[in-house]
């Protein structure tokens, strides 16, 4: 018999450090979370509940009348405007987001160059977005300042009408119609791109130049890959901006039906509208996220592969260990019951 006492290993509580870090994480997020839960999530949840009800505000208070998904079916089947507007919104967003992002990128690249009076230019590019979100916008559009005057949109749209669905053509001609307005929307995106461009290490470009890279190549091989996360950010931001700003027809519709006193509309109906709308917005964002999400490069893929293989190996080892233990137990039991026939002749059991 060996005299080795079986020393029970002092169990290190799994990741004291990790737990501390998690603690800190929760502490840092907590204030934010409280705000979000109270003023965003709870209202969201309530609005979903409302969307399943027909709500009328009477002098006695709010009258709830549970109707299930009727509000939703009513919107799709009976509302004459909402589905049409929604389609129009979808097309126009899908079309104008790339325009805005690309335009913002070009401007940001230009502003990032070495020029005098940069601050002034930046100011000019950023300010329209503030004005545009105000009431002044309507006056401007009325003045016809938002269109490019010499463009013959009618000709373009009739030409396109022959081989594209009508709603798409409408959105395209609207895009051309409001081309300048769309450019005005790109202030924040330019800022985001600029601050991303600032962070690119200048020596990368120097190295590329020494190796004989042209400016064009530098853009595709250095600039674009580096700011790729920001492209996604900007696309998402643009979608959110376009779907939330005051000139949006759908927002107006939601607001109108919210305060309409008719029997079938009212807040429940508006809430259902808002849910459908936000679902569409989410779909659009997901689409862009899917298109732009960083595809991992070869190195990262390799790392992930190795990690996965290692994990599998560890699992395998554990499995084998477990199986071995189980088997040992089984053998022990069998031996106790004398059912186990040992082939070991030297053994004396």
């Amino acid at each position: 018999m060996s005299k080795e006492k079986k020393v029970k290993k002092p169990r290190i509580s799994a990741g004291k450090l990790a737990r501390r870090e998690a603690m800190a994480g929760y502490l840092f997020v907590l204030p934010w979370m409280i705000g979000v839960v109270i003023f965003l999530l709870r209202p969201l949840f309530t609005s979903f509940q409302f969307s399943l009800n027909n709500i009328r505000i009477t002098p006695k208070g709010r009258m709830f009348n549970f109707v299930g998904y009727q509000n939703y079916t009513q919107i799709w089947l009976e509302d004459p405007e909402f589905p049409v507007e929604l389609m129009g919104y979808m097309w126009s967003t899908l079309l104008s987001v790339p325009v805005i992002v690309v335009f913002a990128l070009i401007i940001a690249m230009l502003l990032n160059g070495k020029i005098h009076m940069k601050g002034f230019f930046r100011l000019i590019f950023f300010l329209p977005v503030i004005i545009v979100s105000g009431p002044v916008m309507n006056m401007l559009v009325a003045d016809g300042a938002a269109t490019i005057p010499s463009m013959d949109i009618q000709a373009i749209s009739t030409a396109l009408d022959q081989f594209l669905p009508h709603s798409l053509v409408e959105s395209i001609s609207e895009l051309f119609n409001n081309m300048i307005m769309i450019l005005w929307y790109s202030g924040v995106q330019i800022l985001i791109f600029l601050s991303a461009l600032q962070k690119i290490d200048g020596s990368l470009y120097e190295a590329a130049k020494i190796d004989g890279g042209s400016g064009w190549e530098c853009f595709w091989k250095i600039t674009l890959p580096t700011i790729k996360p920001m492209v996604l950010l900007n696309a998402v931001y643009t979608v959110i901006f376009l779907s939330n700003h005051g000139n949006n027809a759908i927002i107006g519709m939601i607001q109108n039906s919210m305060f309409s006193g008719t029997k079938e509309k009212g807040y429940g109906y508006a809430a259902a509208m808002a849910w459908i709308y936000s679902l569409v917005v989410t779909l659009i964002v997901l689409l862009f996220a899917f298109l732009l999400a960083g595809r991992k490069d070869i190195y990262e893929r390799q790392v992930i592969k190795v990690k996965r293989a290692k994990k599998k190996e560890i699992q395998m080892v554990k499995k084998i260990e477990r199986r071995g233990k189980a088997n040992a137990k089984k053998i022990q039991k069998a031996r106790l019951r004398k059912k186990y026939r040992s082939y070991d002749k030297n053994r004396e059991d």
Partner: peptide, 18 residues
């Protein structure tokens, strides 16, 4: 992200209740 997608008009009344 989900909260981001939601239009603020829709949560106006529940927010008032809160």
């Amino acid at each position: 992200q989900t909260a981001l997608m939601f239009v603020s008009v829709a949560v106006m009344i529940p927010r008032y209740l809160t």
